[in-house]
Amino acid sequence: MAVISVQNLKKHFGKTKAVDGISFEVEKGEIVGFLGPNGAGKTTAIRCLMDFIRPSEGKIEIFGLDARKNSAILKKDIGHLSSESTLYSSWTGQEHINFLEKIRGVSQLDEELIQNLKFDAHKKVSALSTGNRRKLGIILALMHQPKLLILDEPTVGLDPLLQNYIYEILKAQVAKGNTVLMSSHNLAEVEKICDRAIVLKEGKIVTVETMSDLRAKKIYTIYAYFEGNVPKKELTADGAELIKEFSGGLALKVKGDIKPLISKLVDYKNLKDLEITHASLEEVFMEFYK
C-alpha cells in the first residue's frame, strides 16, 4: 500500500487551474521531490494533501485513508512544514514546542534538534531571522517523529551547512522507514536527496522519474569543429537544434538517437574535431519547461 496515493487531483480557483489532474503515488521509505518553478502547483497540491484546501476533483489517500474524511487522525502521523513558516510572533520557540507537546504529547527529539540546529528556543519569534524561523518550523515538523513528512521548500533561507544537516535528518527519517514528500524548485537539492522527482508544469505532471532515469535522458550536446565551410543548414535539417555558432564550428543539441547525426558529420571531409557530452540534469529539467 502506498503511503500517499493521489488520483486525478484537480484544484481550480475560478478559471485558474492551479492543479489540473495529477496522479502519483509515494511508497513507504521514499523521499520524493515535487519539482517545478513558482506557480507550477506544488504548494497547492501539498495544501490539498494537508486538507487545508479541498480538491475540485480527485481522490487523495494517505496511509490508505481518505485524506479529507480522516484529516485529524492522519495528522497524528504527519509532520508538515509550510513554505512560509509563519509562527506566533509574540511567542518564543519554546512556547511553540510546549504548545505542540500539549496537543501531540511529549517529544523525545526536540532537545536534540534544538542542539543540532543551534537554535535559541528562548527568543521570541519576532526577534528571529528568516533562517531561524525556518529552523523552528523544521523542529516543529520533526519533533514528534512522524511517519510521513510533507515539507514545502524545507531549506529555503538556510545556509549550506544547515541545508546539509536537514538532508541528513531526512535521510535518517527514511532509514527508519518513514516517508518524505518535499517540494523544491532547487534541482540540485532534489538530485542530492530524492529517490524520485515529480516534475510539475502549469498544474500538470510532466514526468515522474527516478533521479537516475532523469539523468539518463538521452539529450546530448555536440560540438563540431570544421576547417573552412561550416555546413549549418545540412546539420540542423534533421531535428538537431542549433545552440550556438562560433568561428569554425557550432554546438548542437540532439534528443534521442545520436547515430544518424554522427554518420552525417563523419562524412564531412573538413570535419576537424567532435566533442559529445551528456546534458546536465538541469538541461534535462529545462526541457520540460520549454
Binding site: M50, D51, A72, L74, K75, S82, E84, Y88, L100, I103
Partner: peptide, 17 residues
C-alpha cells in the same frame, strides 16, 4: 491573515474543534 492557521490545521485537531 497572519498565516498561523496552518500551524493549527497541521495538528491532529478537527476544524470543528
Amino acid at each position: 491573515d497572519k498565516g498561523t492557521i496552518e500551524l493549527l490545521l497541521a495538528q491532529p485537531i478537527s476544524r470543528l474543534k
